[in-house]
Amino acid sequence: MSIIDLTSMGESQVNLRDEINERLSRLQDEISDYCYQCAKCTSGCEAHKLLELEPHKIVALLKRGLIDEMINSDLIWTCMSCFKCRERCPQKVAPVEVLFALKNMAVASGKQIPGNYTAMLQSVLSIGLLQDVKNITTRDNKSKNRSDLGLPEISKPTDPTKFQMMLSKLAVEKV
């Protein structure tokens, strides 16, 4: 199985997009009711000063249904998932969840996945982990691995084929 299965525009992706669409419209309904644009989310946003993300504007754009505009923007990928916006919103709106849904939608619509996400995803699909075990270097430049350090063998999926079967279904199944 390859990354294509998760990101292609194929028939199978329709269901995934439906699911994300549902999620987005649910968020849209809740938000139109509750968000009063106080911008408290933006005032504490970790990505605001450095990368100009304004979560209250993301919410406002969602309210107006400008989803395509957002999934085509790099801005949604500047969120660092600190959850401060969700924690601090006086109206229990969670801009971070809107951003997750938008990023999921961008991927499901075949937009390019930025940076290393593709490699991370591929690694999870093939070995079950974000990355394989590394040799690391000590402060005085000696190379060490898990067994040098007396650590047991790493825990990872024992039957990769079955594990991949589960994941491939997930990417296509409507849930």
Binding site: L16, M120, L129
Partner: peptide
């Protein structure tokens, strides 16, 4: 207690596919 067979928790790839995170 160590246990064989664990995989990624899914949180780091939530931006790509939230359902995948949930299932993992």
């Amino acid at each position: 207690v160590d246990q064989k067979g664990f995989s990624c928790c899914g949180e780091p790839i939530k931006s790509v596919n939230q359902m995948l995170s949930l299932a993992l």
